[in-house]
């Protein structure tokens, strides 16, 4: 599974430019699914049919990652940019970004009036090594994402875009391991989560599921002087209770907890103070969908180097596959 994770994280895919990630995933899921389709927003939906005795379940993980988009090219060929998703200038300076056509840029910063203060985004620029404006092969409207190789540190893995390629990997691996299920399971790989859960909103409308489960990353409280949070790397899949967009349906939350207990899997409970996931969009789709979220504890979210624990990933696959193998009764 590490090979899959490496390929997914190293692929280019800022919000709105998910084509390559989608192609990669489509190759993985096509042979394993009964039906695959791409909707008008670009969401990839792979259906594994049940035996008719179960429910319609939608699993969602988003394909897109945060990035930058060029808004202006100056006379010397430096690029000004806007944020695609939640970018913090603090982690940008000195970072490298990659455009769809393979051009790499370095993020630089103007001379600052107050060097000790974090500069706003409009003081930063991208330097693609241009010697003049004319020779550029990137321009206004082109999006770029971080460049970083996947690093396997044993139990711990570091890469860009674990948010949410690790969710995509977990969905793919679940589909690989799921032999029989009573449910019609829609494995939905969504677009544009980072700019407002947009793909999940339209795909949830399209699928119209009975139950929804999103798989995404969450922050942790296990680093030096971190904001207090009872989520740590390696403590198991995090079962969400609340974030800033949703309160988890208690029936789905209990189903996740009961399944973990039944299978003897470690798990932890997540309360996220800031941020939300595709689960929010699914929950409020149409007349409402009972929805839960499995989160992967992730350090340094929205930086070029996010870190996770591999056992959390493996246990999340077991949890999902276990849940989908049985009938679902929501209390």
């Amino acid at each position: 599974m590490k090979e899959l994770i490496k390929n997914l994280t190293e692929t280019y895919g800022p919000s709105g430019s998910e084509t390559r990630v989608r192609q990669l995933i489509e190759e993985e899921v096509r042979a394993l699914s009964d039906q695959v389709r791409v909707d008008s927003m670009g969401n990839l939906m792979a259906l594994k049919k049940g035996d008719g005795s179960g429910r319609k379940v939608m699993l969602a993980a988003h394909m897109d990652e945060i990035g930058v988009i060029v808004t202006h090219v100056d006379q010397k060929g430096f690029l000004r940019f806007g944020a695609v998703g939640g970018l913090r200038p603090l982690v940008l300076i000195g970072s490298r970004v990659l455009f769809a056509n393979g051009v790499t840029g370095t993020i630089g910063v103007e001379k600052l009036d107050s060097p000790n203060k974090v500069p706003p985004l409009d003081k930063l620029y991208i330097d693609v090594g241009a010697v003049s404006k004319d020779a550029l092969s990137v321009g206004v409207g082109d999006a770029a994402c971080f460049v970083r190789p996947f690093v396997d540190q044993g139990n711990r893995l570091t890469a860009k875009a674990f948010d949410d390629r690790i969710g995509c990997a977990i969905l793919i691996q679940t589909l690989r391991t799921l032999i029989d299920t009573p449910h019609d399971v829609y494995f939905v790989f969504t677009v544009q989560e980072e700019v407002g859960l947009r793909g999940a909103r339209t795909s949830a409308y399209g699928v119209d599921p009975d139950v929804g489960i999103a798989v995404d990353v969450t922050t942790t409280g296990d680093t030096p002087e971190a904001h207090p949070m009872a989520v740590s790397l390696g403590n198991g899949p995090a079962i969400k209770v609340k974030d800033s967009g949703m309160l988890t349906h208690p029936g789905v939350k209990n189903l996740l907890i009961d399944t973990a207990e039944r299978l003897g899997l470690p798990y932890q409970i997540e309360v996220l103070e800031r941020g939300t996931t595709d689960g929010y969009a699914m929950q409020v789709s149409r007349a409402g969908v009972p929805t839960g979220v499995i989160s992967i504890a992730t350090r340094y979210v929205h930086t070029p180097s996010e870190m996770i624990d591999y056992n959390d990933v493996l246990n999340s696959v077991k949890l999902l596959a276990g849940l989908l193998s049985n009938l679902i009764e929501l209390a």
Partner: peptide, 23 residues
Amino acid sequence: QFKQSVTGGTDAGAIHLAREGIP
């Protein structure tokens, strides 16, 4: 020309998310 800024919102924001999504 291209609009060279990512600020502001328009009706397209609401329209493209209607139902199953609209180009």
